[in-house]
Design a protein around this nucleic acid. Structure first.
Lengths: 195, 195, 195, 195
DNA sequence: TATGAATGAGGTTTCATTCAT
DNA sequence: GATGAATGAAACCTCATTCAT
């Protein structure tokens, strides 16, 4: 009830100006922590890494899903941006998506907690945005022979999911090599950019 | 009110005879619980479902991985047994493997805790046994056109991993349909048996 | 998600003019929140309901007790005002007091935090003001047989406390009926006004 | 996930034999803590005072209500036992009930969390048992003039509730005196035993 | 003076693991 | 060997309070 008897060493309250900075720090920390310890890493580790109070974490991201989705959102946005350039091919986009999966591990993982729970609606939206971006390059990829004949947008998305899911289980060092093998098996050309 | 004030009513100690029965009960319970709540479901739920003391669970399976691996082991054994029959095709074997993935969710999931930790050595062994069984049918599958030309045993295993990993993230009801799509995309024929 | 990345949209600072309005809004919100969730409801809920910043809440009411007492103060003032009318009887005053207890739940509750802590001195003052108002009507109530012979002002106050305390534990729907039973048992006539 | 790295200084696991002892220790501790700090005192304080692990507290009493009810249950049982002696009067029973209220503060308090939530069904049962015990002595109390003519069992229970509720708000030192005044006002004779 | 984000202590609860019986 | 209670380290989350703006 009372609490806060002392008063010594709290971190300075940086004030509202810090809000945006804090949010960004939390996302960066989450990226790191999730990459290191998996997507069910303790959230307080994220707050600590971000140099931010526990409460701020919860203010910005009321639950773990919100945090994961924000991370995922960033990735999808990046893909969309890149897709603005008409020169960019499906292989390029898949490459970026793969890069994200390699680096962040979070993607799909744990976007729904238990296998039984329906996927979060916000996730569905992100899927659609991804589908749109990738789909817009499919025709040309077909023409160029970068994917097998008859491949649909759904097929591409399914491929992304399979690759991402498989990467989740791999140690970081192997992921890139592994991803390349997986895409080859799927018969889709990808150009994974360096980090 | 829980209680048990006097020690009267403890379940009788069924003696060593029960050991095998307990082990089996634990495995069955684990299958159910993991299917329902995912592979990081609390272990005490497994013990409870099995009708077995917490301590017995730990005697039989000193850690979570041991339990998961035992489950996985059963599956691999089944595949090996089936593979004794020379009539059985790769498609049949992949079908059984897929059935397991659909039903149990456990397969690869959490066979290593964090993405960074090296896979458990016991898992490696199971992978090899699977590879052997599947590989023994590859030649004929190639001849029959059940897989794409040039497919290697490693490719098949990679496919298994990808499908299994992707299924982990899907609600039970969708898994079978999803698995079939995934295999089609991989260009491998599978015959998923009913449950 | 939540955010406010840029500081753009903060509610405008309405300046000192808003001070009184804010105070009133806080009291109204506190009445509602305490009625709904009990007197230890989180204070930020009060601020939110009042549409006022967290800081303003603390400026106006430095601690929870201050807020509760302010609420109580309003009630006592109302009773005093009513008592200006010489026609008003003890039954009327008790009725108003009871109405307050029914509606607000706060009365005595938590005016002191733990049972051991001495009651807040400000509370003592409010008790005295109530005693004065009620006492001024006691003689006539005795004459009219509205209270049992020999009843003292202290008895009446004790009755008020008992009724109020008992009401605290009752769901809103039952309170009025319950209060009437309690007063009957105490042998004091009360006229509870409608809301 | 892993946890328990060290292994140094855990309290010894006293084994199941300790179960009953632990339960009793928890109840005793709860009595003390609640008396000192009110019924919403932190539960970990109870565990600490009882010299028992946090988990054991939750095993024995899955929620705060369960603990409060267990405490209350003990009191009701005591009353019932005393009521077996046919010589015992209503005044005696009310005295014991009052003694409990004076000492424990818990009685009704917080048996329901927020004012709106319906009372716990287990509480209803305890109320009925109390009613039965008290009611069995009412006739004689009426004959002896220990309660006002026309008093019903419900009236007596209502009185108990009012007194108990009012005591909750009083510092320990005043409670006995206060209770006696309250009962006098209610016109019911009680014989409060010493502690 | 108002605002609302930040803070972090602490309460609640869960669960892997141990261990007396 | 089996049992199930005990343990306590954490994880989660809330909320009183402070403070930059």
């Amino acid at each position: 009830m009372s609490t806060h008897v002392s008063g010594a060493s709290r971190r300075a309250n940086a004030g509202p100006r810090a809000a945006a900075r804090n949010r960004a720090a939390l996302l960066a920390a989450a990226r790191e922590i999730f990459a290191e310890r998996g997507a069910q890493a303790p959230l307080n580790a994220v707050a600590r890494r971000a140099g931010v109070g526990q409460g701020s974490l919860y203010r910005h991201f009321p639950d773990r899903i919100a945090l994961v989705l924000a991370l995922f959102e960033e990735q999808v946005s990046t893909v969309e941006e890149i897709a603005h350039d008409p020169e960019v091919t499906l292989a390029d986009l898949l490459g970026v998506v793969t890069r994200h999966a390699i680096d962040s591990v979070v993607s799909i993982d744990l976007a729904s907690a238990s296998p039984e729970s329906r996927p979060d609606p916000r996730l569905v939206d992100l899927r659609e945005r991804t589908a749109e971006a990738l789909g817009s390059r499919l025709e040309r990829a077909l023409a160029d022979g970068d994917v097998r004949p008859g491949t649909t947008t759904d097929d591409v998305l399914l491929g992304v999911e399979m690759v991402a899911a498989a990467l989740t289980r791999r140690p970081a060092a192997e992921r890139e090599r592994y991803a390349l093998r997986a895409w080859r098996l799927l018969g889709m050309k990808v150009t994974v950019p360096g980090r």
